[in-house]
Design a protein around this nucleic acid. Structure first.
Lengths: 236, 236
DNA sequence: TATTATTGTCTCATAAAGCGACAATAATAA
DNA sequence: TTATTATTGTCGCTTTATGAGACAATAATA
């Protein structure tokens, strides 16, 4: 058992989160950069001794993003014995002039539970943690090199999101409250990384009976204006 | 960090396994019964300090079943703060006259990683661990009351197996080397808990090009004899 | 009023799944 | 030997889902 800022955490267990956002037609995730190290990592944290695992992740993300009620999905637990490269973690601690014995537990082996989150990037104000300079959106296709096995954590999260997109459709969280069919299709396309046929996509979405049609959205362009949609209450 | 039989284990982390077997047309799982307590639990264990998580589970199951190369799938990590009822664990330790301080760590909070396994029950010799009287097959529909949240672990495992049955088809491990189409269909039916149409099922299985047809199986009954099938090498 | 780009919807083609039917066949009974 | 019976392998028809193009409707501009 180890303490940080007066809170007791469970040794050797952490979580890492892959926070998806959608902006300008691009799928993005949150990445933290540690002070003076050039090292990048996923937002993560530890589990307090009396805290639910799910709650720990929820609270950690709320601290980073300011959002409550984030859509969260646990997707895998990473437990390779050699996944923690101590030199990277040492560099992070040393760059912050943390040499005290009381933080040495951070250098030990960790088993990490992976969660992905879907959030609306427009509603977020980002807060880096004490060890980090920044907490920033990165295009999923232009990620910096990440520490440890975080790249494979991202890959697994993305794969899980793709597998689940047709089953649970938690996508309302990535778009605004209201959106056009084209915006929804664009989101599907960047997640699945493939082009979809417009007519087929619209037919399928409407047949699922999960969308509500609202007023039209007049963009000022010289063409027919699309309807706005939202997800129905209790759509799943 | 805590020791047991001279091995150092990571505190507060465990795994629990849902080991599926198939016998007499029934889906079964392995359940352990602890000495003199009337308490039943899933086979589980701890992770040694230098051991991969996957390896720990693999080794633990090998000890229980004698099988190597077991088909294993991680499906969820259970981290509720209140999932460990200390009275149950106390009862188990006391029934084994274990009062020593060195085992008190087993009474603490545990986060548990759930795995399911598919094994051929005919190839198994079951070995209970030191605290248990028995390690026995139970029909999935006739389970005894399990300790802690093990019932929900079983439910989640079964749900995951159902979700994955059409994607990865790891079912060869549950049947013998060779099997009839009827046996394969019966397995699908008990897993999915629904009747399937014979013609459609056969057509789909054959069209997937994953089965190899062998000689016929003459049962002695007054009807046409079915072919035996096996899964092709590198079928997935 | 014509033009242009985009949307909502339709139709046709193709693929997959549900369901019943029928001949083939292994053993038994007549 | 032949009829009977239960089960199997497979086929055809129907229903449902998916892929792809087409066309009228429409919002703004020329």
């Amino acid at each position: 058992m180890s303490t940080l800022n007066g809170v007791e955490y469970i040794d050797h267990i952490a979580y890492d989160s892959v926070v998806f956002g959608y902006a300008a037609g691009r799928l993005k995730i949150l990445v933290m950069e540690y002070h003076n190290t050039g090292l990048f990592a996923l937002p993560g944290g530890f589990i307090a001794m009396h805290e639910d695992l799910d709650e720990a992740v929820k609270n950690g993300l709320e601290a980073r993003t300011g959002l409550k009620d984030i859509y969260l999905e646990q997707f895998h637990t990473f437990g390779k014995a050699d996944r923690n490269k101590t030199d990277e973690m040492k560099k992070i601690l040393e760059a912050n002039e943390i040499h005290q014995k009381e933080f040495q537990w951070m250098l030990s082996r960790f088993i990490s539970v992976g969660y992905y989150a879907l959030i609306n990037h427009e509603l977020v104000t980002l807060h880096p943690d004490a060890l980090s300079d920044s907490c920033t959106w990165y295009d999923i296709n232009k990620l910096p090199k990440l520490i440890q096995d975080h790249a494979s954590i991202v890959a697994k999260a993305l794969q899980t999101l793709r597998d689940q997109i047709d089953r649970k459709l938690p996508l309302f969280a990535l778009l605004g409250e209201k959106f056009t069919m084209q915006e929804l299709q664009g989101l599907y396309e960047v997640i699945l990384d493939e082009k979809l046929h417009r007519g087929t996509f619209q037919r399928k979405m409407l047949s699922m009976d999960i969308l509500e049609r609202h007023e039209k959205k007049y963009s000022g362009a010289a063409n027919k204006a699309p309807y706005l949609y939202s997800f129905k209450k209790n759509w799943n």
